[in-house]
Amino acid sequence: MKYDFIVVGHGLAGAILSYTLRKKGARVLVIDEPRPSAASRVAAGLVNPIAGKRFAKTWLADAFIPAADAFYKELEAHFEQELYVHKPIYKIFSSIEEQNTWMAKSAGTDWQGYILATHTQSINQPGIDDPRGGIMIGRGGYLKVADMLLLLANELLAQNLMLPERFEMEQLQLTGQGVRYKQFEAKHLIFCEGFQVTQNPYFRWLPIQPTKGEVLEVQAQNFNPECIYNKAVYVVPIGEGRFKIGATYNWRQPDEEPTPEGQQELTERFSQITSQPFQVMQHWAGIRPAVRDRKPLAGTHPQHPQLSVFNGMGSKGVLMAPYLAEHFTEALMGATEVMPDIHIARYLSLYYDYIKDQTQQL
C-alpha cells in the first residue's frame, strides 16, 4: 500500500502533525505502540503564556496561542467533545524578590491581553496561601491530552490508517522513491518518537535530553477550581474536586517509574499553595524530549531527504504543536522553508561529529 507520509509516533507531536497532514489532503499512515505511561498521555496539557521566575513571555506566544485556540476548537467541533478548557492562571509570588521582579517588568507593553490583574497582597481566597499576592494570567488553559489522543487514534484505526505496534527500524528501507516499511510504501517518513529518538540511528545525533517528569492526581475538597495555580508546581483542576499537580524534572533517572521522592516533592510543593487537606489518587511518570536550547526540532535529514523529524517540544507541546505542525506541513509540501529557530540544521555540526565517530569505529 502507498502513502504520502508515514508518521512514527502518536504522542502529542505525531498526532497533531498527522491530523494536519490529513487535513491538507495527504494520505498518512501512523505507526505507534500504545504506551499508557507515554509523556503526552500523563501530562496535564497546560498552556501558560508566561512562565518562570523571571516572568518571560513564552517564545512566539503571539503566534502559538491563536493557532492553538483555533486548532483545538476545530477538533472539538470535529469530535463534538470538549477538549480544551480555558482558565486563568494564578501565578503566586513565592518571595518579595519575585514580586519586585514582576513589578519592574510589568511596566512594559508586552503584556497586553495576557495579564488580567496584579495582586500585591493576598486575594483572600479560602485555602490559598498567597501572602504576597500574584498575577492572574489570561489566555491560558489546559488540553485533555489523553482524550484527544484516544479520539484521533480511534479515527485512524477506523480508517485503517494506523498500525498499533512498535516500529521496527530493521524493517525500514530507503528507496529512490521514498521509503518502504514491511508492505507499506511512502514518499516520506517522519519520526515523532519523543525521547526514543535518542535510539534512532538516523537522528540520535540531535541533542535531546530525556527528562523524567512525575505528576499526581489529588482529591482536594474546598479548593477553588476556577483557575489554574502556579507556584513551583502547577495545579490544574480536572473536575469533581480533583487536580493534577506537576511536574518534577529529573535528568538523572530517565525511566517511567513513579518514585516516592517524586511524590514527596510534589505534595510538599502543593502544601505550599494550600492549607486544605488532600489525598493522592494517582501517580504517573513520563519522559519528555527536552532540547539543549529549549526549541523544538523539525527538518529533513541532511543525507536522506525522504526522512524527517518533528520532536523536542518538551513541556510546551500543547501550546507549540498546532502552529508548528501547520508550518512544518507547509514546508514538507514545498510551500515554505522550515524556520531557522527550529530547523535541525542548527545542529549540523553534531551530525558531522556523529558521522566521524561512526566512521572511526568501523
Rank of each mutant, 00 (worst) to 15 (best):
I6T: 10
V7E: 09
G9H: 04
H10V: 01
L12T: 01
A13D: 09
Y19M: 06
R22P: 05
K24M: 14
R27C: 02
D32H: 06
E33S: 01
E33H: 10
P34L: 02
P34C: 02
P34I: 11
R41M: 10
G52W: 05
K53G: 14
K53S: 14
T58R: 13
I65R: 06
A67R: 00
A68R: 05
F71W: 11
K73E: 11
A77Y: 05
H78T: 01
E80M: 09
Q81C: 10
V85D: 02
K87I: 08
K87P: 13
T101Q: 11
W102I: 07
A104P: 11
A107S: 15
D110Y: 10
W111M: 03
Y114S: 08
I115R: 00
S122Y: 00
N124I: 10
N124K: 13
P126I: 09
D129K: 14
G134C: 08
R139M: 13
G141M: 04
L143P: 00
K144F: 01
A146N: 13
L150M: 07
L151G: 00
L156N: 04
P164N: 04
E170A: 11
L174E: 12
R180H: 12
R180V: 03
I190K: 09
E193A: 03
G194M: 07
G194C: 02
Q199K: 12
N200W: 02
W205H: 09
L206M: 08
G213M: 02
G213N: 09
G213T: 09
Q219D: 08
P225G: 00
E226G: 14
C227P: 15
Y229T: 13
N230R: 05
V235E: 06
V236Q: 02
V236F: 06
P237H: 06
I238T: 11
I238F: 05
G239H: 01
E240T: 14
G241K: 05
G241D: 07
F243R: 00
R252F: 13
P258R: 09
T259M: 03
L266Y: 12
T267E: 08
F270V: 12
S271H: 10
Q272A: 14
T274D: 06
Q276H: 13
F278L: 09
M281Y: 10
A285W: 03
P289A: 07
A290S: 15
D293K: 07
R294W: 14
K295G: 02
A298S: 03
T300E: 12
P305V: 11
P305K: 13
L307H: 09
N311K: 09
G312P: 06
M313W: 05
A321G: 04
Y323C: 12
A325Q: 08
H327I: 03
A331C: 00
L332Q: 03
M333I: 09
G334I: 09
G334Y: 06
T336M: 00
M339L: 15
L348K: 15
L348A: 15
L348C: 15
S349T: 14
S349C: 10
Y351W: 07
Y351Q: 00
D353H: 13
D357R: 15
Q358N: 15
